[in-house]
Design a protein around this nucleic acid. Structure first.
Lengths: 350, 350
DNA sequence: AGTTAGCACTCGCATGTGTCGAGTGCTAAC
DNA sequence: GTTAGCACTCGACACATGCGAGTGCTAACT
């Protein structure tokens, strides 16, 4: 038995209907709305589709529900690229292109508008900074016991930390230490910096070295780690309440509990393939996401920096629509970022 | 009719039972468990209590449920101070006194452990920084077009922002501007700094002034505002799923949606009285919190800085227990903070 | 041979009915 | 003032019934 033209059309119709209504769809409905033959004919075809594993029925006399295999077929073969409605494009634009000054803010907004447009749970990962290089390192004395450790990266990400010394250090000592750090670390990527043996190659007297190791080095490492951290932003979590599949309170509960393990989710998302990736139900290999689908895409800013964003929703999701939104968004993140940087392509060398 | 000893005892028993079970409590239950007379006697008393507005019954033949007036009476008159179990004290201690380095982290942990112990939704507001003073202001050139604006406050809170200039500035210019800023702003509280007319009293040439106004001042203001921001942390939101009063999916939904308006919640919490404050149901004057009770307390760190933390839960909440936890926590936040600052009381002058 | 009408059958769901148990209110006796 | 007893109320639950949507199958139609 193979997938004839009509079978495909019927399957598509069933998917469309089920995505819209979340109700099992019967032969009569399809027959009425799609001009694909009489209910009886459709029933025969549906029966075949069921045998082939594309449709399931809860029990004998209920309508049919598309299987995950059906969604996979749909996503791979039947789904067409869809131009986003102007309205949605506008919504995205007004969110992205409006006086945002920080990349992370841009990302947040992208995730936010994504959740609003799709009515699903959206998330975004801030770009990984592994390739970002240290550019400027300094130690600024505040008073005898407090200094500020200041790191600036290639991409002008500034980070500083108040460090409390256990005994006063002279400005001279700090200057020397800062010089040493600059010498050893500037030009290195953040992840490289973390792997280097901190005190190797330091040229300073024993006391300064001791002070560095005790007080400054730990802060330095912590700050580097922090700069490397990928942030996960989530929006529209409560959108799941609108979905009939989460009418069951315990389902909603477990969803929330699992989705709140940010580390775990970050992990999962990072390890996904680049580009637009769609995983359906069991493909997610995850207890909680078993009856969800996840769509992610990679966005690029500034050539090298890469992050992810996407949505989590029921397998019954409007793949076509959501995919276009996700795609449109990732494209526009780069553009918005460039705009944010100012009209200063000439300055990009720095 | 007035509240006799026995009536009070019966009311207390009913509250205790209802808090535990969330089921309307009947005369027989009380009679069996509390030795306060036969079911019939208790029924008579309950009838009186109902007339006085302390008990309500859903319908003729259901058990009684304490009214908000009853909870108010309980909280005001009948509740005793309760020593926390050692187990809970330990849980709090292990969360608060373990290598935390930032105040905000301490606060987060406090809220987290609070939600864990009470099984309710807990929140914490980071301390307001209105009284925090600017101590150190500097502009550090990164390259021709990028400088770092660096602010350090009295309490060693460091903040810096990358500022992009629209045309290059000499180190000298930046030095002068920084000096001007220091002269005008250091020693001022953050909120004072925001109210001052930025460019008044500046001594610099016209070009430097223009540059300051165009590029640096906006970042300065934004940074100040950011430093003044009070952060709201929430934990245990999903705990409400365990409460029978939120078995209704729409209730859970509205709860989540409202509780997610961080600004609104922050507003509401800030405006509450200091010290331990308990508001019950309608006292909250809020559509969503109408059938919740809120317990907040103020914590102090460092003498002047003040924040809040507390829980949101159903009116049927263990007020005694929760109040003790909240109280114990606020006390220990100050202690943990002092420990965090190091054993350096001698350095506190700075 | 593919398509369709017709019909018996299944199942979920809503509705109605009866029973049970927990609880109240009242009255009369202690 | 307290208590036992009793009639009454109401929600929860179990069970039956009917309805509607849907299927599968067969036989007739094109």
């Amino acid at each position: 038995m193979n997938l004839t033209e009509r079978k495909l059309k019927i399957l598509q119709a069933i998917i469309a209907d089920f995505v819209r209504t979340a109700e099992p769809v019967g032969s009569r409905t399809i027959s009425k709305n799609y001009d694909l033959g009489s209910p009886a004919t459709i029933r025969n075809e549906m029966s075949d589709l069921g045998e082939m594993g594309y449709l399931t029925n809860i029990h004998t006399s209920s309508g049919r529900v598309p299987s995950e295999k059906a969604y996979r077929l749909y996503v791979d073969e039947m789904m067409k690229k869809k131009e986003l409605s102007q309205e949605k494009k506008d919504a995205i634009a007004s969110e992205l292109y409006s006086n945002v000054t920080e990349l992370d803010n841009l990302i947040k907004r992208a995730a936010h508008v994504l959740s609003e447009i799709t009515n699903l749970t959206a998330f975004a990962l801030s770009p990984g900074q592994e390739q970002d290089k240290l550019k400027y390192i300094n130690l600024l004395p505040l008073d005898d016991y407090n200094v500020v450790l200041m790191l600036v990266s290639d991409s002008c990400k500034v980070s500083n930390t108040a460090v409390r010394l256990d005994k006063p250090a002279s400005e001279e000592t700090l200057r020397i230490l800062a010089k040493n750090m600059t010498y050893n670390y500037s030009g290195k990527t953040l992840s490289e910096a973390l792997t280097l043996d901190i005190i190797k190659n330091f040229k300073a007297d024993a006391e300064a070295m001791a002070m560095f190791e005790r007080s400054i080095a730990p802060s330095f490492i912590r700050t580097l780690e922090e700069m490397l951290n990928v942030n996960l932003y989530m929006y529209g979590l409560t959108n799941i309440f609108a979905l009939p599949e989460y009418n069951d309170i315990t389902k909603a509960k477990t969803f929330f509990e699992k989705i709140n393990c940010k580390e775990e989710i970050t992990e999962k998302l990072i390890s996904r393939d680049d580009g637009i990736t769609i995983t359906i139900g069991e493909e997610n290999m995850d207890e909680v996401l078993r009856d969800c689908s996840v769509i992610t895409a990679t966005y690029h800013v500034d050539g090298k920096k890469v992050g992810k964003l996407g949505v989590i929703g029921p397998t019954r999701m409007n793949y076509e629509e959501v995919t276009s939104v996700v795609e449109y968004l990732t494209d526009n993140i780069s553009k918005a970022f460039m705009l944010m940087e100012g009209d200063d392509d000439d300055k990009k060398e720095y």
